[in-house]
């Protein structure tokens, strides 16, 4: 299962950070872009499996879904966009630069002291 390998990668990364900051990890904040290719519910499910039996068995997963935000090369403006309509509303120019929406990021950890 795909989201499981992502959850397992998260465990490894959290281990590395937690090694530098002692204390129980209460929660992990993750940012998932709409174009990341990762399904939020599947990741939640995979997290339950991945954290079981590890030092993070009680660590909660908090997911922020990041919508698509693009910059138009023609007019320089930034706009929100939908995945099936990645166009500048004004210029209708191809080759939009995607600023936000591709994230698959471990943003932060809440650690008890």
């Amino acid at each position: 299962m795909h989201e499981l390998s992502i959850a397992l990668s998260m465990i490894e990364q959290i281990e590395q950070v937690a090694a530098r900051h002692p204390g129980p990890v209460r929660s992990a904040q993750v940012r998932i872009g709409v174009l990341s290719g990762v399904d939020t519910e599947a990741l939640r499910f995979a997290w339950e499996i991945a954290r079981a039996g590890t030092q993070f068995a009680s660590t909660n997963l908090e997911i922020e879904n990041v919508p698509l935000r693009i910059r138009c090369p023609a007019c320089g403006d930034t706009h929100p966009a939908e995945v099936d309509s990645i166009l500048c509303p004004r210029c209708v120019t191809p080759e939009q630069q995607i600023l936000e929406g591709r994230e698959l990021q471990l943003a932060s950890l809440e650690i008890d002291e």
Binding site: V17, S108, L109, E110, E113
Partner: peptide, 16 residues
């Protein structure tokens, strides 16, 4: 007991 927020900002698939 206090809680600290540690910024990580790391791509989960960074290794790949």
């Amino acid at each position: 007991m206090t809680t600290r927020l540690i910024e990580v900002r790391a791509n989960i698939l960074r290794e790949n």
